[in-house]
Design a binder for these strands. Structure first.
Length: 827
RNA sequence: GCCCGGGUGGCGGAAUGGCAGACGCGGCGGAUUCAAAAUCCGCUGUCCGAAAGGGCGUGUGGGUUCGAAUCCCACCCCGGGCACCA
């Protein structure tokens, strides 16, 4: 089909802004709470507004937008909101550098990101936009904090915390990666500070149990399970030994936690964490000096130094001079201090069993402590500590039992002896939410010398940071210097008091934003039971796998807590029914390429090639779940393809004279059938996130239509129109502008409001198929046969194939028939 | 170390027990053009062969099966997660 002057050229720059404006003006994607259509809630993760969209954003929001449009065409009322996770350090750092207020800085970045999203054709109900830093949102984040505080789910405590010297703030455990700050990369220090926590550990068991019910990627579920880290064991007391090595009755036993009570007879020493509160009490005078020195050494050590020896045999520790009694053997065993025992887990002290634990083995070897095996290793075992299955040995009344049986018997014995009780421990810690930063949601608390910790009354919310702040490069929050903010009178007694200057971790903001979207206009409540019931849970949540732990766990915790507090409906336990995690976009590999992607930003690509071509290229590149290399991004083929579609679907010119009417020829029937097959295929591929192959389907079909219109016979008008109109409808969720424009020109209709095509099952069946004939599993011939051929006829046809007979020496020994696809002749 | 993914042409990938390499990129050739761009059509895993045709081929080695990229076992490599959690 040669280019024709009569066909207006495809100019995305002309049509795309027009349609983007129309979707806004027509309020196509706005949804009211009482919308009668069946509801769908499609949500892409709350973005941090860092300025114009980068390619990772474009990928994420293209996937979401495709679904919003697809479900809308399927007659659903789709809630497609957008918001901005607009608190955070970058704005604050920019303020320190330029003196510009973080609010003006942030608002500008939000405007840029919003504009990029509109430019790629993503559609939202913009009326529902939520921003973390908006006072109307701050108010409810603070209100929720207060409800948590009243319920004991928020508390203030002195605790060893992770301090990032670069960010000048404390970090949650989750934000420390390999001892480094996950944002700045600084080495994290330990500090003891008074801080606010959310009691997420109250929900550890439910958070763990309900993972099972979620339609989430398996690896995300595994990561959450690992993070929560449930372990079942026994907590029991080791009596302190007196001078004779007997259990002292006047001293509290040392509590330890173990998951392997069955190995108790192999306990040849015990270890306390250097931070354990009973270290002083249990250290003898002779050992006091070395113990104090060791404690100081450990305290000085950063997390990374402490971890750097992990897995090595260098188990550092000192003897306390004291002994405890192994209740299993009745023997007195030495009590040590070692930095491999963590104060934050279990009781902060352990029974050490070198025979069955490699860490204890290493420590015992380094300090000359006796090692007793209590589980028989296999004959060929050549390791050190043996942690596998086996029969108990050297264990008196446990001898001969398997690990599980012995565990149970030993645990029961400890309970019977009133020494201990069964205990479940979690790795999960409470969520440290205080941040010593300015650009975050203020914690609505007042400290009064008379009344203590007092919450800001609800009617005084929100507490918002003042505008006239002075930003200094000291790293300290400017709130600490602002007398107007700092000084306040106590809401209870009226005495002079001062405000909390810490703000909340920004993960608090994103832990409930999806709820606010259901009723963002509400001034009397963060949302209502009704609004939650109307839209939640989110039917499809879309985001990066980097949020697999932090954000998703916090949002689940908030949901459960809010439900239990009666703020949300009681039975609303999980916010995100279905989760899709798209792969990351990697950039900056060494690979060089001529493709445009290397040098152009998404905005430049839109300007040069159009948003539809950009979207299509992203969809085609790779399966959505996989990581992509930016270098592999290729737009030329997609742009060429859209031009082909444009020419094909534009009011026909060059081949209009060839169009036939009347009876259908064989090739018309084939095209009609292929159209129905395409409907079936693409619908299925959209449902299962196979966007890359859906794009291939569009291209294949378009290629076959090009051949069709160029045959000497010419295309059949109604058949061609049906094929093209269907193609445009199927492509509409992926490339919304070009399809909207072409459909309007062709039929006057709005493709995005049209209903989704439905395949006619009768037209999906073809009457002739290619049957392959194999000899010994190798393809030797292809035969055209009727689709409903009988197995007998298929076998006969295969035996009649001359091409196959060449490889047969007489009659085949065996014939496998899978009519009508294949016949395998086994010689 | 443990737990997940993954390894297929020059490149991104398709095929989840039945024609390996769909679709796109890149490359080659043809049509159109004064010429070029654009466009349209065709070819393009590899080896042998003039061709017809055939051999080989989905990280490596074994196995199951009439038939394996696909299932099983062992190993190698790449990516991610967890990692002193008692």
């Amino acid at each position: 089909m040669p280019e024709s002057d009569e066909i207006e050229r495809y100019s995305p720059n002309k049509i795309e802004p027009v349609w983007q404006q129309r979707w806004l003006d027509d309020r196509t994607y706005e949804i009211d709470n009482d919308d009668p259509r069946p509801k769908r809630y499609v949500l892409s993760m709350y973005p941090y507004p860092s300025g114009p969209a980068h390619i990772g954003h474009v990928r994420n929001y293209t996937f979401g937008d495709l679904l919003v449009r697809y479900h809308t065409m399927n007659g659903r009322g789709v809630l497609s909101p957008i918001g901005f996770d607009s608190f955070g350090l970058p704005a604050e750092n920019a303020a320190i550098k330029s003196g510009e207020h973080p609010r003006t800085f942030t608002d500008a970045r939000i405007e840029e990101l919003s504009s990029s999203l509109r430019q790629i054709g993503a559609v939202y109900d913009w009326r529902r936009t939520v921003k973390s830093h908006d006072p109307s949102y701050i108010k409810w984040t603070q209100w929720i904090f207060k409800r948590f505080w009243e319920a004991g789910l928020a508390y203030r405590a002195q605790a060893p915390v992770n301090w990032c010297p670069g960010c000048q703030t404390v970090l949650a455990n989750e934000q420390v990666v390999d001892g480094l700050c996950d944002r700045s990369g600084d080495v994290v220090e330990r500090r003891d500070m008074e801080q606010w926590f959310y009691k997420i550990t109250d929900y550890a068991q439910e958070l763990l149990d309900e993972i099972e019910t979620l339609d989430w990627p398996a690896r995300v579920k595994v990561m959450q399970r690992n993070w929560i880290g449930r372990s079942q064991g026994v907590e029991f007391g080791l009596p302190i030994a007196d001078a004779d090595g007997e259990a002292a009755t006047n001293t509290e036993p040392l509590a330890v936690y173990t998951t392997r009570p069955d190995t108790g007879f192999g306990m040849t020493f015990a270890v306390m964490s250097p931070e354990h509160p009973r270290v002083n009490e249990l250290t003898t005078e002779a050992q006091a000096a070395v113990v104090t020195t060791f404690q100081a050494e450990v305290r000085e050590m950063s997390e990374i130094d402490r971890l750097s020896v992990s897995g090595t045999a260098d188990k550092r520790g000192v003897f306390t001079g004291s002994h405890v009694v192994n209740p299993f053997t009745g023997r007195s065993i030495p009590l040590y201090l070692a930095d491999y025992v963590l104060i934050t887990y279990g009781t902060g002290a352990i029974m050490a069993v070198p025979g069955q634990d490699q860490r204890d083995w290493d420590f015992a070897t380094a300090h000359g402590i006796e090692i007793v095996r209590t589980v028989q290793p296999p004959a060929d075992f050549d390791g050190e500590a043996y942690v596998g299955e086996g029969v108990a040995i050297n264990s008196d009344w446990l001898d001969g039992l398997g690990v599980d049986e012995a565990k149970k018997k030993a645990a029961d014995w400890l309970v019977d002896q009133s020494l201990g009780e069964g205990k479940i421990n979690f790795r999960l810690r409470d969520w440290l939410l205080s941040r010593q930063r300015f650009w975050g949601c203020p914690i609505p608390i007042i400290y009064c010398d008379e009344c203590g910790i007092v919450a800001v009354p609800d009617e005084d919310l929100p507490v918002v940071a003042p505008d006239d702040l002075e930003f200094r490069p000291t790293g300290e929050s400017p709130l600490n210097y602002h007398q107007g903010f700092l000084n306040v009178s106590c809401p209870v007694c009226g005495a002079d008091a001062r405000r909390e200057t810490d703000t909340m971790d920004t993960f608090v903001d994103s832990a409930w934003y999806f709820l606010r979207f259901t009723d963002p206009w509400n001034d009397d409540a963060p949302f209502t039971h009704k609004s939650v019931e109307e839209f939640l849970p989110v039917d499809q949540y879309i985001g990066g796998v980097e949020h697999a732990i932090l954000h998703l766990l916090y949002a689940r915790f908030f949901t459960k807590s809010l439900a239990d507090l009666g703020v949300a409906p009681k039975n609303f336990r999980e916010p995100f029914r279905k989760l899709f995690t798209q792969g990351m976009v990697r950039k900056g590999g060494v690979k060089m390429s001529k493709s445009v992607g290397n040098t152009e930003s998404p905005e430049a690509i839109v300007a040069n090639h159009g948003a539809d071509a950009l979207r299509l290229a992203i969809l085609q590149l790779k399966p959505p779940a996989e990581d992509v290399d930016w270098e592999d991004f290729q737009i030329d083929g997609c742009e060429r393809f859209l031009n082909r579609v444009w020419r094909l679907a534009s009011v026909q010119t060059d081949f209009v004279k060839n169009v036939r009417a009347g009876e259908l020829s064989a090739q018309d029937v084939a095209i009609e059938s292929a159209t129905h097959v395409l409907i079936d295929r693409v619908t299925n591929e959209y449902e299962r996130w196979a966007y890359n192959t859906a794009v291939a389907g569009f291209m294949e079909f378009t290629n076959s239509l090009y051949k069709y219109v160029q045959t000497s016979e010419g295309p059949h008008g109604p058949t061609l129109d049906f094929a093209v109109d269907t193609l445009l409808a199927l492509m509409a969720p992926a490339v919304p502008h070009i399809t909207a424009e072409l459909v309007e020109r062709r039929t006057g209709a709005n493709v995005h409001l049209n209903s989704w095509p439905v395949a006619d099952p009768a037209k999906l069946v073809v009457d002739k198929v290619t049957m392959i004939v194999q000899v010994n599993g190798k393809v030797r011939d292809r035969l055209e046969v009727a689709a409903d051929i009988t197995p007998e006829a298929a076998e006969a046809a295969a035996l009649g194939s001359a091409a196959a007979q060449k490889y047969l020496d007489g009659a085949p020994k065996k014939v496998i028939v899978r009519a009508p696809k294949l016949v395998n002749l086994v010689a």
